[in-house]
Amino acid sequence: MSASEPALVSAPAVAPALAPPARRVGLLAATAAIMRKEMRVELRTLESVPGMALFAVSTFVVFHFALNRTSVSGSLAAGILWVTLLFAAMLAVNRLFVADAEQGGFDALLLAPVDRSALLLAKAGSLLVYLVALEVVALPAFALLLLGTSLGPGLGELIGVVALADVGLAVIGTFVAALAVRTRARDLIGPLIALPLLVPIAIGASRGTAPLLAAHAGTVQVRWLLLLGLYDLVFGLIAYAVFDFLLED
């Protein structure tokens, strides 16, 4: 240890002469770098997405037996779909920051000369990717196992509602995950805080998708898209404003 200390002390003294002035990495570049890291970790460990997808499919089976129905439609179908997706998302939210908190990822980010919002953006982006991957599995499984009608006619609108709801889920999930990860009971605190915050998303998403899953497919009412979009925007701004304070250690 003592041998390396002089080097550390003298480094700043010589650095300005030799190295170019410290360069701040841009927000987008940092975000992209962290997201690449996230994706690589997920691809190597496969600890979030397969679990979420399996959980969603199992939940559909449980709903089949609990409701004693072979097919559902309309608002019941929308409710089952969104409750399942919300709870499956909780699985990813619970472990979103665990590796960073336990293995020094937070410290590394604080030492790096990058904007801390990069972590929020990258984590929300990763969670969004996980959710899309989950839905690529869960929506066909839902259509196959439970849905009485065909997804075909309203597919475009369904994708629109799902995308808006996913953005909200990703933002709120990331915010809550960062809030809960340093607590002793994070597996409990996270979902407890997240579920009330996600009620507006649940309202907008399930009311929006209900007519698409009905026997006589209707169209999405614009106000649900508006509700989802506004909520995404407002909560995105709130999370952006306060996220830095969760990292100040």
Partner: peptide, 21 residues
């Protein structure tokens, strides 16, 4: 610090949840 972050987000959530419901 964490409690304050929670209180800010939840305080903003009060009018939002009213509108949504």
């Amino acid at each position: 610090r964490y409690a304050s972050v929670f209180a800010i987000a939840a305080g903003a959530f009060v009018p939002l949840s009213y509108t949504a419901v």
